[in-house]
Design a protein around this nucleic acid. Structure first.
Lengths: 211, 211
DNA sequence: GTATAATTCAAACGAACGTTTGAGTCAACA
DNA sequence: TGTTGACTCAAACGTTCGTTTGAATTATAC
C-alpha cells in the first residue's frame, strides 16, 4: 500500500468525532479533512459512512469482549476447581476492569468508551444493532454466572440490579476526568485503578442488598 | 389564536422525535409534517430548531425540579424539627421518585426522559448546556444534603457514589418497558412504583457501603 | 365594517450532506 | 519496460437541510 495507514487514520478520527458529536452530526468531510485524507477514501475503504461506524466499533469491542470472556472463564474455572460458587465481585470485575483498563490505554480508547455511552443512549440509532450483536454472548454468560454467584436473589431482582450496574458503569465511563454532568470541582481527580475498586464496592453492595 | 395548539403540537412531536432519533437526525420537516402544521411554524413560534429544543426541555424540567426541591425541603424541615440528620433514603427519593412519577404520566414525559438520557450521553451536544443550567441548583443542594446525611463518608467517595447513582437512574429511566440493552425476556415486566423502591434499595446499599 | 395584528402558507434560498464517476498516480511484478 | 491492481484525487451528482421571504388568511379591537 502506498499510504498504509489511511484506514487507521480514518478510524482514529472517526472514533474521535463520532464520540464527540454523534454519528449524524459528524460529516465525512470533517473526518477526512481532520485525517488528512481524501474525501472519497471512506467510501473506497469502508463502503459507506455506516460501515465506517461498524469498523470503528469492531476494532475496540472485539478484543475488549475477548478479555472480558477470559476473566469470566478464569473465575468460573477457579470456582469449579475449589468447589465453590463464583465470587460475585470477580464476576463483576470481568465486566468492569477490562473496560477501565481499555479507557486508560490512550485517547482513542477513551473516545471509544464515550461513543459506546452514546450508542447506549440512542434507542434506535444506527450503532445500536452493531453494538448489541457483539455484546449479547457475553451479556448472557454474565447473567448466568451472576445468577450462580447470588442464587438467593430472585431472577427479577438480579436482572434489575444488573441493569442498574450497567447504568453506573456506562455513565462513569463516558464521563471524562472531570465529569461534565456535575458542577465543576465536585468530582476530585482520582486514579483510575482506584476507580475500579470504588465502583466494585458500590455495585457489590447494591447487588447484595437485602431483597 | 386561530389554532391555539400549534405550539403544543410542535412541542409534543419534537419531544418524541428528538428522543427517538436525536436532535441532528430529526428534521424540522419531519416534526412539522407529523404535527400537521406548516414547516415554518417552528421558526415563527420558537425562532430556530435549537430554541425549539430548549422549549421542549423547559416544559418538563422546570416543574420536575420544582417537585424535587419540594421533597428535599420537606425532608430537611422534618429532620430539623426532629433534631436529626436528613435520612439518606429520603434525600435520594427526592431525586428518584419525581422522575419515575413523571415517566408514568404518559407518553410525552416518557419521551422526555429518553431525551434527557440522550443529552447526558452527549458530551458537547446542543442540549447539554440547556439541561445542566436548569439542573445545577438542585444538584448542588442534593450534594450538600447527602453530605449531611452521610457525614462519615469522605467527600470524594460521596461524589463518586452520587455519580454512580445518577448513572443507574438515567440508564434505567431511558430504557423502556423491556430494556433494549439486554437480550429479550431478561427483564420481566414490573410495576414502576416498585421500581422506585428497587432502585432506592440498590442505591442506598451502595451509598452506605464500607469505604 | 374596517384597520391592525397574529398566524399560516407555498415557494424558494444557499449551504451542506453522502455518494458516484472517471481520470490520474504509484508500486509491484512479469 | 510494460502491465496490472491498489489507491488517491478533483469534480460533480442529486438530495435534504434550516431558514427566509412575501403574500394570503384569520382573529381581534375600535
Amino acid at each position: 500500500m502506498s499510504q498504509p495507514d489511511t484506514k487507521v487514520k480514518i478510524l482514529d478520527v472517526a472514533e474521535k468525532l463520532f464520540a464527540a458529536d454523534g454519528f449524524h452530526a459528524t460529516s465525512l468531510r470533517a473526518i477526512t479533512s481532520n485525517a488528512g485524507v481524501n474525501l472519497v477514501a471512506v467510501n473506497y475503504h469502508f463502503g459507506s459512512k455506516e460501515e465506517l461506524l461498524e469498523a470503528v466499533i469492531e476494532r475496540r469491542l472485539t478484543p475488549l469482549n475477548r478479555r472480558r470472556a477470559e476473566m469470566l472463564d478464569a473465575e468460573l474455572a477457579a470456582a469449579e476447581a475449589e468447589g465453590r460458587r463464583p465470587d460475585p465481585r470477580q464476576v463483576l470485575r470481568a465486566l468492569v476492569e477490562p473496560t477501565i483498563e481499555l479507557r486508560e490505554q490512550g485517547e482513542g480508547p477513551e473516545h471509544f468508551i464515550t461513543l459506546v455511552g452514546r450508542i447506549l443512549a440512542d434507542p434506535r440509532g444506527v450503532g445500536r444493532d452493531i453494538f448489541l450483536r457483539r455484546m449479547e454472548p457475553f451479556i448472557l454468560r454474565l447473567f448466568e454466572t451472576m445468577h450462580q454467584a447470588l442464587p438467593h436473589l430472585s431472577f427479577s431482582t438480579l436482572s434489575w440490579r444488573m441493569h442498574f450496574a450497567v447504568g453506573s458503569l456506562s455513565h462513569v465511563m463516558r464521563c471524562h476526568d472531570r465529569c461534565q454532568d456535575l458542577p465543576p470541582g465536585i468530582l476530585p481527580g482520582m486514579k483510575m485503578v482506584r476507580l475500579a475498586d470504588l465502583l466494585l464496592d458500590y455495585t457489590l453492595a447494591g447487588m447484595e442488598a437485602p431483597e
